[in-house]
């Protein structure tokens, strides 16, 4: 079946199978920043923005995304530059596998929460797992980013 997706601001008609998940479809269209991590919607590495809100593309049927707008880090490189700088400065990009998904969730959070506390940030981002950093550098980076943005 064919669906219409706006991927990173480009309208695309994509051929999918009815049971295919958005993750696989996006990777096939070249959005390789979207990562396959866990199969159960537990790790957050496959996070994308659907109409600006973070969703887990590994457990989101591609068919359900028909007519919607998808953003991955490929489509917002300048914005990722801004957040990424803080993450890299704090040493919080270790293996980097989880980072594109994390950055997108941060962008989703910025729209939903104004002036969040450290605790609120950790709660919002808790679905994005990282095994390398212990998260400590993440929170340092993200709080600094949010502070400097004000």
């Amino acid at each position: 079946m064919k669906i219409n997706l706006k991927i990173n601001n480009q309208d695309k008609i994509v051929e999918i199978k009815p049971h295919e998940m958005l993750l696989e479809v996006l990777r096939k269209t070249g959005c390789l920043s979207v990562k396959h991590g866990c199969d159960t919607g537990s790790c957050g590495a496959c996070t994308v923005l659907l109409d600006g809100k973070p969703v887990l593309s590994c457990s989101y049927l591609a068919a359900k995304a028909d007519g919607h707008s998808i953003t991955t880090v490929e489509g917002i490189q300048d914005k990722v530059d801004q957040i990424g700088k803080y993450l890299v400065d704090e040493g919080s990009v270790q293996c980097g596998f989880c980072v594109p998904g994390l950055v997108l969730t941060v962008i989703g959070m910025e729209k939903e929460l104004s002036n969040p506390s450290e605790q609120e940030v950790n709660h919002y981002l808790s679905g994005n797992l990282c095994r390398c950093t212990g998260y400590v550098s993440h929170i340092r980076a993200i709080m600094k980013y949010l502070e400097d943005k004000k």
């Binding site: 880090v73 957040i83 890299v88 400065d89 990009v93 594109p100």
Partner: peptide, 19 residues
């Protein structure tokens, strides 16, 4: 503490991993 040399590329989701 210089930035990790591949840090920004990875943050920006450049194709880098086996898959």
């Amino acid at each position: 503490s210089i930035p990790k040399i591949d840090g920004m590329g990875l943050a920006k989701g450049k194709p880098a991993f086996t898959d």
